[in-house]
Simulated assay, not measured.
Amino acid sequence: MTTPALSPLLTVRGLVRRVGSRQLFAIPELVFPRATAVALTGVNGAGKSTLLRMVAGLEPAPGATVAWEDEGGTRREAPLTPLPPALRQRVAYMHQHPYLFRTSVRDNIAYGLRARGVAHDEIERRVGAALGWAGIVHVQDTAPEKLSGGEVQRVALARAKVLEPELLLLDEPTSNLDGHAREQVIALIGELAAEGRSVVMVCHDRELINLPGVVRWKLGDGQLDTRHR
């Protein structure tokens, strides 16, 4: 018996970005599949980070729409800008250079849950699990400015994971990392994908691109190739 195909997590239509008179890209339809890890590649300046930020609601996307299924299975569609409230808890974005609040690592990871009004006991449980997952229990009471680059990235990944998003958008998650720090972050991203979450990451890191099951998208010449090999 054939397993039915999963419906898309999100479908974005009419995604266009112009810089002055120049059209950076025009993407008629972009389907974000469920339970899939995607490496978004392309030359510098192609608009990869901009694309992710538009989908995350961090940059305006005039004229673009987004379609999804709500928890009851009903199809919904709305303008992408502003990001519909129903999607804000389903999408998480991690900046290439994550900003951490000038408080403890634990407080940074708990911030989003507190903002959502999650009960204290549930926050403690989820933050504790995220600290253990990211291997940063030993720095949970440390101020961010005392962390290494690899630790900052792992804190940012834990802060995103703890929100339990369905779609994680990661901008160059291993940039400026090398050696063991890079290997740790790659392993965590592999685990996120293995959990069945959708992960789209801007990257040039061959090891990330070549992780098992990763699909490659390539942005170039104003077009997005989602079947790139």
Rank of each mutant, 00 (worst) to 15 (best):
Val155Asn: 04
Val152Asp: 04
Val66Asp: 02
Gly135Pro: 08
Met94Gly: 13
Ala26Tyr: 00
His95Lys: 05
Val12Ala: 14
Ala5Asp: 13
Lys146Gly: 15
Leu15Phe: 06
Pro84Gln: 06
Cys203Gly: 14
Ala134Ser: 12
Arg76Phe: 05
Val199Tyr: 09
Arg90Leu: 08
Ala5Gln: 13
Asn108Tyr: 12
Ala129Met: 08
Gln140Pro: 01
Glu124Phe: 02
Leu208Thr: 05
Arg34Phe: 08
Ala5Lys: 13
Gln96Ile: 07
Ala64Glu: 06
Arg182Ser: 15
Gly135Met: 07
Leu51Gln: 09
Gly73Ser: 09
Lys218Gln: 15
Gly73Lys: 12
Ala39His: 07
Ile27Phe: 00
Ala35Trp: 05
Glu124Asn: 13
His180Thr: 07
Gly47Thr: 10
Arg53Leu: 13
Leu6Arg: 12
Leu167Arg: 02
Ile136Asn: 03
Val118Cys: 05
Leu177Phe: 01
Lys146Tyr: 12
Ile189Met: 12
Leu15Tyr: 12
Arg159Ala: 15
Val55Cys: 07
Ser21Gln: 10
Gly20His: 11
Glu195Phe: 07
Glu77Trp: 02
Ala61Asp: 00
Ala86Ile: 00
Gln184Asn: 11
Arg102Gly: 09
Glu71Cys: 06
Ile123Val: 15
Pro173Asn: 00
Lys218Asp: 01
Val31Ile: 10
Phe101Thr: 04
Leu83Tyr: 01
Met54Leu: 07
Leu15Asp: 10
Gly14Val: 01
Val43Phe: 03
Thr65Trp: 02
Ala78Phe: 00
Ile209Pro: 00
Pro98Tyr: 09
Cys203Pro: 01
Ile123Ala: 07
His95Asp: 15
Val19His: 14
Glu59Phe: 02
Ile123Lys: 05
Gly132Leu: 06
Tyr99Glu: 11
Asp107Cys: 00
Pro79His: 06
Gly222Tyr: 07
Phe32Leu: 06
Ile27Ala: 01
Thr41Asn: 07
Val55Leu: 14
